[in-house]
Design a protein around this nucleic acid. Structure first.
Lengths: 257, 257
DNA sequence: TAAATAGTGTCTCTTAGACATTATGGT
DNA sequence: ACCATAATGTCTAAGAGACACTATTTA
């Protein structure tokens, strides 16, 4: 049997093949809203997702995750990054793969297997874009609102639920908090970001834990200026707070020891 | 614009669509080989992967991961389970999604986006099958051997590498060890299974850690018989060893406290 | 001086980690 | 008696967890 025979016998023409393989992106951001109490205080933070309103069939007029079809010449991740930039203008952000959504009938256009990604975007990057193009209707919605009260296109509610569940887990198990923080931050800010994503996170002695346990010492370090002096910030408090920065180290986690 | 117009305008016919969406499965098992020293001792364990030899183009004659194309009527996970059963006869096993492999050119048959799964299979289930059908040439290979010394079809080396990396992480962060153990096991066995998957895992006081720390108490418990008596085993040692069983509880992991 | 956040002192109990020691029962 | 595995004793240092307390600056 020649190779061309083989090749012909494997031709996909005789099988039903998928009608498309899009990437959909759950874009998370944390908005900051200054309290107007006059006094310095930590801003109110809220976890939000970016949605776009569909302009065409199917689910015309409904809110949906941004995304679009992959091309033969790109990997799925490239597709996700391209769509992310096309639809929101943001690039070079933290993007992670969430999973495949392939339930039959999930898309009325046919057999369409979707790949979901999570993007964690600093509000600053997103706000810049919001003003820039208003050609497409986009919106930022509180995650709870979007999950509970909105009717979403396709299986996007399920995807969002999975994405939310994943970043809650990751928020505690990794240093993704840095995606929502400036390079140098106070422990108060970090604590607040964590609680914004994981409402149940109550750590009384948060500062103590970070600063006094050796096993977590390596994760972040005190920020210092050119002279080696410790840097502090009075952005959110009267008393100057020590600034910290992530080192890049993430400890391995184990349930056995 | 009528819906059929919309529908027509979205027809996938005018776009290039994928030529297939297969699932490939990395089947891990741990083989047990009794030492023939005569004395009772823990068996030698080894982490292995199951591969099949390809019978046709492309990569004819080369070893590859078992797998096959998804149908329009099934989810990817169903595809993976179906292929797993078709090719190895095992069912109802622990299966987890690994990720999508979509690099252009990864499959000479066309634009084929593959979905990788990990299956963790108890040797007993696999051995039963091995004898049953030898129509297809299958083989169990030590993971290091497969990764370092074998030429594999497609991007299957990369998939295997990712799968190995993932189960090493999961072995420490979850209770997947139970997939390789009988329902009741000794701490010696558990320790050995963990070290088989994670060679670097050296926990001197393993028994002590499991039995004396409150935070890990809930993960497993002493096995008891109908009368509530503690059960022990002398399968691997002279001195009877306490049997344990997993409770199903998995503690949340956090780097912050 | 009240408000708001940052950070320390102090105490108790638990855990980590290292090493030595004992236990069990067959060859 | 020796072996391989199982399990405990003992000690020290470190961490967890709770709560009260002090620190810093501005409205």
């Amino acid at each position: 049997m020649s190779q061309s025979d083989n090749e012909r016998s494997y031709s996909s023409a005789k099988y039903r093949t998928p009608d498309g393989a899009p990437a959909d992106i759950v874009i998370f951001t944390i908005t900051k809203q200054e309290k107007r109490s006059g006094k310095k205080s930590l801003p109110v933070r809220e976890l939000k997702v970016l949605l776009i309103r569909r302009k065409a069939w199917p689910f015309q007029g409904m809110w949906a995750l941004p995304g679009g079809f992959s091309k033969e010449t790109e990997t799925m991740e490239v597709t996700a990054r391209r769509e992310l930039e096309e639809e929101t203008g943001v690039r070079d952000v933290h993007l992670e793969y969430l999973g495949v959504y392939s339930a039959p009938g999930r898309d009325p256009r046919g057999w369409i297997i979707s790949h979901a990604y999570c993007a964690l975007v600093n509000e600053a990057l997103l706000a810049h874009r919001q003003a820039a193009d208003d050609a497409e209707e986009v919106g930022l919605f509180a995650i709870d609102d979007a999950l509970e009260n909105m009717e979403l296109a396709f299986d996007h509610r399920e995807i969002m639920r999975d994405a939310y569940s994943k970043i809650r887990e990751q928020m505690l198990a990794s240093t993704i908090a840095k995606q929502f923080l400036p390079e140098r931050f106070t422990l108060g800010e970090l604590h607040q970001v964590i609680r914004t994503v994981v409402p149940g996170f109550e750590e009384h002695n948060f500062i103590r834990k970070i600063t006094s346990t050796q096993s977590r010492k390596g994760i972040m370090e005190e920020a210092r200026d050119a002279n080696g002096e410790k840097q502090t910030s009075i952005e959110y408090s009267q008393r100057p707070a020590q600034l910290y920065r992530f080192t890049g180290y993430e400890p391995p986690l184990s349930i056995y020891g």
